[in-house]
Design a binder for these strands. Structure first.
Length: 287
DNA sequence: AAAGCACGCAACCGCACTCGA
DNA sequence: TTCGAGTGCGGTTGCGTGCTT
C-alpha cells in the first residue's frame, strides 16, 4: 500500500479553497465526473492533491449538501446513532441525508458531547447560549476572501458565481444572504430565512450561478420539496432517463448538455419538476 | 481599546481497506 | 499470493471570529 506523496512536497497548494478553485472543481466534475481523484486535479488544472479535491467535493461542494443548523431532531438522531454505532461518523452520516461525516463529527465534538454532559449532570434543557447560536448559524468565509473580493468586485456573487459557499452580505444589500442552490435548500430547516421559489426569472435568483439570494424573512414552505440522500446524482440521471422517448433532450448523460444547461439545473423549478413531476419536465432550451 | 481566550469549522494527516494486475 | 494505486474514514490541527476581561 503506497502512500500518496505529501501535497507540500509535490509543490501543491494547501489550506482554504478559493472560490475560483471551487468553480474549477465543480465545472470539471460536472463535465467529467470524479472517476479518479488522483488524476483529477492535474486534468482540471488545480494545484491541489486529489485527496484535497475529494474532501472539498464531498464535504462542501456536492449539490446535495444540506447547510445550516442541525435541527433538534437531527441532533437527537446523531446521539441515538452514536450510542448504537460509536464514532462511525460515515455510518451516522448515511442516515442523515445531506449531512457529511465531517460535519457530524464536528457537531458531536462541539455541541452534542457537551449537551450530553449537561444532561447527565443537571438534566437541564440543553439550551444554547447566544454565542453558540450565533456560531452555529452560518459557515463563515475567511475574511481574506470575503473582504478582498467584495471590495474588488461588488457584483462578485454574480460574476464569479462561487464567492459563496459561504453566507455573505454585500454593502449594497445589507441583510441579504447568498447561499448555494441545491434541492436541499428547499427543505432547509433554517427557519430564520427562506428561499424564494416562485419564479426562475425572479430577481432573487441568479440564473447564471449556483448561488442565490436568500431573503431574511419571507414565507417558507418546508414541505414543498423532498429531501435528497446520497443517491442524489444517480436519481438525477434516472429521472433524466425518463426523458427518453420524448422530444426532451437528455442532459445528465451528456456532459456538454449538462454544462450548457447548467443554468436550468440551477433553477428551483427544474429540481422541483425533476423529483416530483418527471412527466412534466420543462423543455430544455436549445444550445 | 486591546489582549487573551474559547469556540466552531474546514482542512489535513495517516492508517485501513478494496480491488485489480 | 503479493503488491501498489486509489479511496474511505476517524482523529487532529490551524485559523478566523467574537466574547470576556
Amino acid at each position: 500500500m503506497g502512500r500518496a506523496p505529501c501535497c507540500e512536497k509535490m509543490g501543491l497548494k494547501r489550506g482554504p479553497w478559493t472560490p475560483e478553485e471551487d468553480r474549477i472543481l465543480i465545472n470539471y466534475i460536472q463535465l467529467y465526473g470524479h472517476g479518479n481523484w488522483r488524476a483529477l486535479p492535474k486534468q482540471a488544472g488545480l494545484l491541489r492533491c486529489g485527496k484535497s479535491c475529494r474532501l472539498r467535493w464531498i464535504n462542501y461542494l456536492r449539490p446535495d449538501i444540506k447547510r445550516g443548523n442541525f435541527t433538534r431532531e437531527e441532533e437527537d438522531t446523531i446521539i441515538k446513532l452514536h450510542e448504537m454505532l460509536g464514532n462511525r461518523w460515515s455510518a451516522i452520516a448515511a442516515r442523515l441525508p445531506g449531512r457529511t461525516d465531517n460535519e457530524i463529527k464536528n457537531v458531536w465534538h462541539t455541541h452534542l458531547k457537551k449537551r450530553l454532559k449537561q444532561n447527565d449532570s443537571t438534566h437541564c434543557s440543553g439550551t444554547i447560549t447566544k454565542q453558540q447560536q450565533r456560531r452555529r448559524g452560518t459557515v463563515h468565509l475567511p475574511d481574506k476572501f470575503n473582504q478582498e473580493e467584495s471590495k474588488a468586485d461588488p457584483d462578485h456573487h454574480q460574476s464569479l458565481n462561487l464567492s459563496d459557499n459561504y453566507n455573505t452580505t454585500t454593502e449594497s444589500e445589507e441583510g441579504t444572504e447568498y447561499r448555494p442552490i441545491s434541492p436541499q435548500q428547499c427543505s432547509s430547516d433554517d427557519t430564520t430565512s427562506s428561499v424564494t421559489t416562485s419564479d426562475t426569472t425572479n430577481n432573487n435568483m441568479d440564473m447564471s450561478s449556483s448561488y442565490m439570494k436568500v431573503e431574511p424573512s419571507s414565507n417558507n414552505d418546508d414541505n414543498e420539496f423532498p429531501d435528497m440522500d446520497e443517491s442524489f446524482w444517480s436519481e438525477v440521471l434516472s429521472a433524466d432517463n425518463s426523458r427518453m422517448g420524448t422530444d426532451l433532450p437528455q442532459v445528465g448523460s451528456n456532459p456538454q448538455l449538462l454544462l450548457a444547461n447548467s443554468n436550468l439545473y440551477d433553477s428551483m423549478d427544474f429540481w422541483y419538476n425533476l423529483f416530483t413531476r418527471a412527466e412534466e419536465l420543462p423543455e430544455l432550451p436549445d444550445i
